[in-house]
C-alpha cells in the first residue's frame, strides 16, 4: 500500500480548477519532490494531502485512510510557510503542547529529546519571541518531527532556512528516509531537494506533467525537468 496516494484530485476556486485530476503516489521510504512554478498548485496540493482543505473531486489516502481521520493525522507531520509555534510560549512549552495534542506517552521527554536533536536544549526555556530566525526554524522542524510521523509533508522547507537549519533538516530527513518514512516536499530549490528526492513530480497549471523517479540528468541539471516536461517559456 502506498504511504501517500492522490487519486484524481481536483480543487476549484469558484469555477477555476487550481488542481486538475492530480494522480500521485509515494511509497514508504520514498522522497517525492513536487516542483513547478509559482501558482502551479504545489501548496494547494500539499494542503489537501495534509487534510487542511478538502478536494473538490477525487480523494487522498494516507496508508489507505482518509487524511482527516484522527489516526491518520497522528501519522503526518507538516512544515508549512509559517513556523506554527507560539511566540508567547517557550520552546519547551511549545513542544510539550504539541506532544500532548498528539497524545504522546511522555510529552516532556519527547520534547527534551527533540530540543537536543535540533540543538535548542540550551534555550529551551526562552520564549520563541526572543529567538533568532534560525532557532525558530529549527524549533518548527522539531515540532513537525516530535510525534515521529510516518509521512512528512514539507512546503518549501529550504526557502526560509539558514545554513544551520538546512543542515539539521537534511540530516533529519535522511534519517527519516533510512527509517522508511515517506516525504513529500514542494520546492524551488531543486538542488537541495534532489539530494534527497527519489521521485519527482512536476505540476504545470494544476496538472501533473511528469511523475517518475529522479534520474541522474535531473541531478546534474535542475532545469532539465522543466525543459523536457514543462511548458516552453
Amino acid at each position: 500500500m502506498s504511504a501517500v496516494a492522490v487519486d484524481g484530485v481536483w480543487k476549484f476556486y469558484g469555477d477555476y480548477p487550481a488542481l486538475r485530476d492530480v494522480r500521485l503516489s509515494a511509497e514508504p521510504g520514498c522522497c517525492l519532490a513536487l516542483i513547478g512554478r509559482n501558482g502551479a498548485g504545489k501548496t494547494t496540493l500539499l494542503r489537501i494531502i495534509a487534510g487542511f482543505s478538502r478536494p473538490g473531486r477525487g480523494h487522498v489516502r494516507i496508508f489507505g485512510q482518509e487524511p482527516r481521520e484522527t489516526s491518520t493525522r497522528a501519522r503526518m507531520g507538516f512544515i508549512g510557510h509559517g513556523i506554527s509555534v507560539y511566540d508567547e510560549l517557550s520552546a519547551l512549552e511549545n513542544l510539550i503542547l504539541f506532544g500532548k495534542l498528539y497524545s504522546l506517552p511522555d510529552p516532556r521527554r519527547s520534547a527534551m529529546e527533540w530540543l537536543e536533536r535540533t540543538g535548542l536544549e540550551r534555550v529551551r526555556n526562552g520564549l520563541v519571541r526572543e529567538f533568532s530566525r534560525g532557532m525558530r526554524q529549527r524549533l518548527a522542524v522539531a515540532r513537525a518531527f516530535l510525534h515521529d510521523p510516518g509521512v512528512l509533508l514539507l512546503d518549501e522547507p529550504f526557502t526560509a532556512l539558514d545554513d544551520r537549519a538546512i543542515a539539521v533538516l537534511q540530516r533529519l530527513l535522511r534519517e527519516a528516509l533510512a527509517a522508511r518514512k515517506t516525504i513529500v516536499m514542494s520546492t524551488h530549490q531543486l538542488r537541495e531537494a534532489l539530494e534527497l528526492a527519489s521521485h519527482v513530480a512536476l505540476l504545470t497549471r494544476g496538472q501533473v506533467s511528469f511523475h517518475g523517479p529522479a534520474t541522474p540528468e535531473m541531478v546534474a541539471d535542475p532545469g532539465y525537468v522543466y525543459a523536457r516536461y514543462g511548458e516552453a517559456g
Binding site: 487542511f52 503526518m76 504539541f98
Partner: peptide
C-alpha cells in the same frame, strides 16, 4: 495567525 499556528492545530489529531 502570525506563525500559521492554526495549521498545526488543524493537523494535530484532535477533533
Amino acid at each position: 495567525q502570525p506563525n500559521d499556528c492554526l495549521d498545526a492545530l488543524i493537523a494535530a489529531p484532535i477533533s
